[in-house]
């Protein structure tokens, strides 16, 4: 992490365990460990949602007859496709076609922004709030917490886009793109589970 800014010291013998060249992949290892840990918090929210819903006598608050699913479905399609455009972007980065990489990367970001926009439109049209029983509470908690992750993903992508303009930074085995893409796929998978739990699961 810190050593990348320091000049490489000449090493008399190769030290395979913690050589300078491997330091970047420490970051990726650390990031994967963090993501695994982060998935548990979603697991906690999902199981809390399921337990509260299964135990509820009246799950829907009065005056609410369920969630509209068409707009979230469009959102789902956009988010899942954005994972594919991201794979394409990474593919072009591997082929060192930086402009194609940037193009698909920006497309992915735009799809993420569209997702957040769709989420905001959905929220503003709802007849219940955060305090409308456990139904409202879990709905806003799950979608809001996921939305925060989408926003974080877009920010990370913006950072990586900026870094792509720094000469030579992607040539030295830069791992930020890989980490960001892992994060984005993670956010995507979480959304699919969330979509099934919130919109597909009918009482």
């Amino acid at each position: 992490m810190t050593s990348s800014s320091l000049p490489e010291a000449p090493s008399p013998t190769p030290i395979p365990a913690h050589g300078e060249g491997q330091h970047a992949s420490h970051n990726l290892t650390g990031f994967v460990i963090f993501l695994l840990s982060e998935s548990v918090i979603f697991l906690a929210f999902f199981s809390g949602y399921a337990i509260l819903r299964l135990a509820a006598l009246d799950w829907l608050p009065p005056g609410v007859d369920g969630l509209e699913w068409r707009m979230p479905l469009i959102n789902t399609v956009v988010l899942v496709s954005s994972s594919l455009t991201m794979v394409l972007a990474e593919h072009f980065k591997g082929k060192e076609k930086l402009w194609l990489f940037r193009g698909f990367w920006v497309l992915t970001m735009a799809m993420g922004v569209y997702f957040l926009y769709g989420q905001a439109v959905e929220w503003s049209g709802l007849k219940f709030g955060f305090t409308s029983g456990t139904f409202g509470g879990t709905f806003y908690l799950l979608t809001g917490f996921h939305g925060l992750h989408v926003a974080t993903g877009i920010l990370l992508m913006g950072l990586m886009l900026y870094r792509s303009f720094i000469p030579g930074i992607y040539a030295k085995g830069e791992e930020g793109v890989k980490a960001t893409s892992l994060f984005w796929h993670f956010v995507d998978v979480i959304w699919i589970i969330l979509f099934v739990l919130l919109y597909v699961w009918r009482a």
């Binding site: 840990s37 548990v40 906690a44 809390g48 955060f130 305090t131 029983g133 139904f135 509470g137 908690l141």
Partner: peptide, 29 residues
């Protein structure tokens, strides 16, 4: 730890934001 952090976050919302994840009177557990 993420499970506790998630649970504590819900406790915080119950305490200051008026949700009812753990409040039986609002359907919570």
């Amino acid at each position: 730890l993420p499970a506790l952090t998630g649970g504590a976050l819900m406790l915080l919302f119950d305490l200051v934001a008026g949700t009812s994840f753990y409040r039986p009177e609002g359907g919570g557990d």
